[in-house]
Computed example of a mutant assay.
Amino acid sequence: MSTVIEQAVQARLVASAPRMETVPATLRYDRGDPYAVSMAFPPPATLEGVEVSWAFSRELLAQGVDGPAGVGDVRVRPYCYDRTVVEFHATEGVAVVHIRTEELRRFLERSQHLVPAGREHHYLDWDQDLAQLLDDYT
């Protein structure tokens, strides 16, 4: 069984101009980091021209498809009946994308099959994490 889930999604980038540009994005969940998900954007979709990946809580994403969630760099909330807004706050500005809620729910369901919510702590490798932490200080 694979320990990583990746799912391509189409994100609509909200800009100050009236049109919304569709950009590809990839959602990723890795059982080795059971509390987090990431969303990556390819170089053509970013200001820097390099792939940009944001990591944030799987729980934040799950809460955000049903109601506003997040107060930090990543915020998620429902929009209309079939979209979810994900906001990425950085020093350069704010990127706002709309994603079909159905795609997010499908991704979350797949991640739940890999690691059920509330059971994430069973998938942590405390010995490896501690060894890595100690190696960083030697």
Rank of each mutant, 00 (worst) to 15 (best):
L27C: 03
D33C: 08
P116F: 01
R110V: 07
D129L: 15
V76D: 09
A55V: 11
V52M: 11
P34L: 14
G72N: 11
D136Q: 04
V96S: 01
V9F: 02
D66S: 13
V50S: 08
P42G: 10
A45T: 03
A69M: 09
L124A: 05
R75T: 07
A25D: 00
M39S: 07
Q128I: 10
H98R: 11
R31L: 13
V96T: 08
D33E: 15
D127A: 07
L124W: 05
F88D: 06
P78I: 13
V74I: 13
H98K: 10
S53K: 10
A17V: 12
C80T: 12
W126K: 08
R58M: 14
A11Y: 04
G70C: 06
R119Q: 11
E48A: 13
F41V: 12
D129M: 14
D30N: 03
S57M: 13
A36R: 14
D66P: 04
G49S: 14
D66G: 14
V76I: 15
V50G: 03
S57G: 14
Y79S: 11
Q112F: 07
W126Y: 10
I5V: 09
L133Y: 06
T101W: 03
R31E: 15
S2W: 11
L13A: 02
R19Q: 08
R110P: 00
P34W: 15
Q7L: 07
P43M: 04
L104C: 07
Y137H: 15
E102P: 05
T101F: 04
D33A: 11
P43G: 04
E59I: 13
L130G: 07
G32S: 09
D127H: 00
P68Q: 10
V97Q: 02
V96Y: 01
T84I: 13
L27D: 00
E21P: 00
R119F: 06
V97G: 02
V4D: 03
L47K: 07
Y123H: 09
D82S: 13
R105L: 09
V94D: 03
V97P: 01
L27A: 01
V96H: 02
E87D: 00
E6R: 08
G72I: 07
T46W: 04
W126H: 09
E103A: 13
V85R: 05
E48L: 13
W54A: 02
D33S: 10
A17R: 12
A55K: 08
Q132Y: 06
L130Q: 09
D82M: 10
E120W: 01
P34R: 14
E51R: 15
V115F: 03
A25N: 03
D129N: 09
M39E: 07
E109T: 14
H89D: 13
